[in-house]
Design a protein around this nucleic acid. Sequence first.
DNA 1: GCCAAAGTTAGGTAACTCACTCAACTTTGG
DNA 2: CCAAAGTTGAGTGAGTTACCTAACTTTGGC
Lengths: 137, 137
Amino acid sequence: MKLSLKVEYALRVLAQLGRYHGSTKLAHIEDLAEAEEVPSNYLVQILNELRNGGVINSRRGKQGGYALAKEPEGISLFDVMMVIDPGLFSNSPSRAGQSGPLVAESLNKIGAAFEARAKEISIRDLMPRDAGPMYYI
Amino acid sequence: MKLSLKVEYALRVLAQLGRYHGSTKLAHIEDLAEAEEVPSNYLVQILNELRNGGVINSRRGKQGGYALAKEPEGISLFDVMMVIDPGLFSNSPSRAGQSGPLVAESLNKIGAAFEARAKEISIRDLMPRDAGPMYYI
DNA sequence: GCCAAAGTTAGGTAACTCACTCAACTTTGG
DNA sequence: CCAAAGTTGAGTGAGTTACCTAACTTTGGC
């Protein structure tokens, strides 16, 4: 499936915001841009869309910055894609032509598999995994 | 997932070629274009790529035309997409940035689900279903 | 052996999208 | 009040998409 760079950028930055989660510090655009190697001029747009989509919160002025709006496990990759690249899921295939309906049906099945998987993965899954409980003999 | 019109056109036309399958008649571009509502000028290109990709066979000259190269159940939607829109499966996400690797891994999982489903559906599934065997009491 | 019917090939293009850039503006804390 | 931050809107070069056009080649039938 063809994914835009924009979606990748958004996910990387959200993963980075996930690392800030729990602390009271807010993340700054420049820091996010540097840590995740995203052009900061472009990141401005992406963060705006994520905020308008309710995925992140922001604060202006000095001491300003960004933070996740919910727990990392409460934000799925599907949620992010819907905000950043809505056309990914909304464009249903045409039913034109004699075979249009059956083709559309099959393509929708493939799209459903894509969508289902995207809903199963959360921002938490993009964050470095804490070492699990260790058992010593 | 974002699919090109080109892929839809290709699938509709292949479904139509599926209807010809079994008979000795070859399908003509103009007939395919009309039945599936695909611009014939564009269809020329698509049929060429399908032929170069080994999905269909063609014959030139009078009595010329197109036919599926294999049984309809032997051609998956994945096969068709690989020929018509190879970038759909080949472009792997970047691993740049601190979260690049984990993001790439997750996106690859979603891509794998997409790919797996596309391999499960064949041109046969795009053809009108024959009435099954009927049992009379 | 022509010629008409078919597929083959190459090239062009208008409109659109993507991945940015730039500049002006607003808010906030010290 | 001013500097540090986010906000907003507009612009743009390169590339892609979905076509169109025209010249070419092959084949079968008369």
